[in-house]
Design a protein around this nucleic acid. Structure first.
Lengths: 213, 213
DNA sequence: ACCTGAACACCGTTCAAGT
DNA sequence: ACCTGAACACCGTTCAAGT
């Protein structure tokens, strides 16, 4: 009995917040955010569910810490510093998108906590720096920041659903398809799209549009 | 006892799929999608939870029907047909956004079902029609369609979180704020933003960018 | 101080039984 | 044919009790 308890707790020392967050990240990356429950998290650490609550207020706090970790993962590395100011902005955001796309669970997490971690401010800081160099005035920069941010999250949110029109169209009967003339027309082009390229292309269009003000 | 049973079931006749979906919509609009459980839905109708399962396969199917209803709500009315092709596209999408924004719960629903209802194809059809009139070739139209769709969902997804940078910044201590030079600079412009205008502005920038190809 | 078992108020859904 | 109660395998979290 005593050995059993020592065996579980002993290996990594006393429970603490950092250990909980690391375990949570492991679970999320391995099994997805929908599998992350307080009970499952306790299992991962080898402790009782209620032991977690001494170190974190609730599940929401765990998720917010996970989002913080992803945010740092982006800003800890130097962001691209291209010569052309327009493409510097584009490449910065592409990098943000790349990390979010690799951690799509952030979408569910953000929706659950309805908040971004403080460290996300650094991302905005980078974007605004690039926009200032590009010569945007404050008002336009604010609008561009919001638009780019929404566009980026929309891409991650929609993810593989982006091909949804194409697949929904594919599922339609021939008689049903007849009602979608326009879709029939562009369908080949839709099917050729590559996710990563499409993100950059729409971003470029948007940045171009703002730069042309 | 018998009266009790008749009282619940009697009023609206036998249970059927349409009645379930209408009740679900009532619950979602009144209390939010997170309150919509099979048990709560049965309560709303005055039946037993398991009675629902004769008429719908599972909760997922209920959500998909709700999404379908919203999608029809957009396409059933004639969409704006402006003279200028660029602004016709913009106004069409603004209208889509307006309805989605009024039913923000669709975000959670889409995330849960990981699919759009077939009727959403009509939305794409409208967008492609506007883009063809605007003279976009198929390849560019496909890219624009995806980008606009992502942008729109991102706006709804992020919703009131869009002001999140501003609020996160506001929460920072003065010493913390010092680390965000760029943010300090644009903060006044950020706080002046109005959600509906910002959506149209970013959309315009993106459409302009694609038209300028 | 730190941990934990039992319990509460929930879920979606299966299964066997009712009419 | 249509409906339903009991039960199963889950949740997050409170509370009182353990060391």
């Amino acid at each position: 009995m005593k050995d059993g308890v020592r065996g579980r707790v002993g290996r990594a020392g006393p429970l603490n917040r950092a250990r909980i967050i690391r375990a949570a990240m492991r679970v999320v990356e391995r099994d997805g955010v929908e599998v992350l429950t307080m009970r499952r998290l306790a299992d991962e650490i080898g402790t009782a569910p209620m032991s977690l609550y001494r170190h974190v207020a609730d599940k929401r706090e765990v998720l917010l810490e996970l989002l913080d970790a992803v945010s740092r993962q982006i800003t800890d590395r130097p962001l691209p510093a291209s010569s052309d100011p327009g493409s510097r902005l584009v490449e910065t955001v592409v990098e943000v998108h790349r990390v979010l796309e690799a951690n799509r669970w952030v979408v569910q997490a953000v929706l659950a906590v309805e908040e971004l971690p403080p460290s996300a401010l650094r991302l905005s800081e980078h974007m605004f720096a690039a926009m200032r160099v590009a010569g945007l005035d404050e008002r336009t920069a604010a609008a561009a920041h919001t638009a780019i941010w929404h566009y980026t999250w929309g891409h991650v949110f929609f993810g593989h659903l982006s091909a949804t029109s194409a697949r929904a169209y594919d599922r339609e009967e021939p008689t049903g398809r007849a009602r979608y003339e326009e879709l029939a027309h562009v369908m080949p082009a839709m099917l050729e799209q590559k996710s990563q390229d499409v993100f950059r292309e729409g971003l470029k269009a948007m940045v171009d549009g703002f730069l042309a003000r």
